[in-house]
Design a protein around this nucleic acid. Structure first.
Lengths: 238, 238
DNA sequence: CGTTGAATTGATACTGGTCAATTCTAGTGG
DNA sequence: CCACTAGAATTGACCAGTATCAATTCAACG
């Protein structure tokens, strides 16, 4: 599964704020593990595989997917550097993990993690906090998929993604590492709808895309209203 | 928020299997706490409220909801007896909790839970396992909401619910504690669609409903195929 | 019984999906 | 440096699955 190779544009993201104590514990899991490299679209692990490892992403972006037998795909989340891959406390992976861009990551044996959990309270607390955070994010996404329109989904997602990704000095501008298909499968719509909806957001003046993968948020407040999380959306926004 | 009152049909569910050690730890949180009673549709806590307590459900069913400012609602999950309410590790509740039926529950202060987490490794491990379980369930639901048709959603949900609820000796028969609106908001469709889709499932012979709230699963295999989690769905199932 | 909210049913509208064609973009090799 | 290619993205025409709106029907309860 692991390959060495130069790879796509190095995606950089800001380091999330971690409780210092917990961070140190998590680092302990992966310290001394060599950094492995995967190119875009390679598989880290597959849904249903026995969960023998956990990973920490060092660089790049990973998507987590669930598949239906007929090929329908849901991208249930994305993983950014410093975050862990491979949920603790499961015999098999409940989803696949694939490199969106070229990635670098560290690997650790589940048996070793289990041992650390068995003795290190601080680590276990930190893991609990991290999983709780992910659970909240998933629940937020349930609201999006269950009740938001395509336009609200896109607006919500673009805000979220822009806040996650690094800006290289330009606070309103990001290079999207994802394809339209990834976005579509994450938002529960089709690529065509993603395309058309992005066009509408452009026409509203909320965003602009000098090239298909360079996003500039022109009007945060407007985009926020279009996301539907606030009352009083602009009446003309249909 | 708390009221005493006799209440709706006592919903019974089978006790989930817990790791014995972990269960004991969890019980410690709530032991000696009085059992409180709420009637149907009363609020346990509200989205955004400071998270001062955690709860353990003793009897009945609770729904967890997220709301949009314009009133759209997503039921992000249901809670059954022995399960905990109120995610650890958050300053405010990220969702509301409402009694679906009359319920009985125990309450414990968050400060007390935090203290237990700070010293009891076994408890923290158990909580971690429980939250991981919930996360997997949420991700499953993301697939449902993102990629399944209304028919697949209903079939999936009815199987899941029937496995959760107690059968009183009739293995294929349950009394639904939920309204059509609860189901609709959980599956991301409207009440009308729930109604029509249930009718279709009846016509296929997968289920029957002698009364609107008494569900009998007539053909598990068929309902399973209609849920879409298997290949080779019946061709006539449109 | 009569009342009220839940559930069902029907008619119609519309969002977003499907299918097909075209354009764009980033590589690749001459 | 410039075609050529393959996959990604866009666009258009049309359609299907659900939503919406409105009207009954049903069931529980006083």
């Amino acid at each position: 599964v692991i390959a060495l190779q130069e790879f796509a544009p190095p995606i950089r993201v800001p380091t999330p704020v971690f409780a210092a104590a917990g961070l140190e514990s998590v680092r302990r899991i992966f310290v001394d593990q060599p950094v492995e490299t995967l190119e875009a679209n390679q598989l880290v692990f597959f849904e249903g595989d026995p969960a023998r490892h956990v990973y920490q992403l060092v660089e790049g972006v990973v998507r987590l997917c669930r598949l239906m037998p007929d090929g329908r795909r849901a991208v249930i989340g994305f993983v950014f550097p410093t975050q862990m891959l491979g949920i603790p406390s499961h015999k098999s992976y409940p989803h696949s993990a694939e490199a969106v861009t070229g990635i670098r990551l560290r690997r650790s044996r589940r048996t070793q993690l289990d041992q650390l959990i068995a003795e290190d309270l601080t680590l276990t607390q930190k893991l609990l906090a991290m999983v709780c955070e992910e659970l909240s994010a998933a629940q937020e996404q349930l609201l999006l998929l269950g009740r938001k329109t395509a336009q609200e989904r896109l607006a919500t997602f673009l805000i979220w993604l822009t806040e996650k990704l690094d800006h290289n000095g330009h606070p309103n501008e990001v290079v999207l590492p994802l394809t339209r298909q990834d976005i579509a499968d994450h938002l529960g719509v089709t690529v065509e709808t993603v395309s058309r909806t992005i066009k509408k957001l452009k026409q509203f003046g909320a965003i602009s895309l000098p090239e298909p993968n360079r996003l500039i948020i022109e009007d945060w407040a407007l985009l926020g209203r279009l996301a539907g999380d606030t009352d009083a959306p602009p009446a003309w926004a249909s």
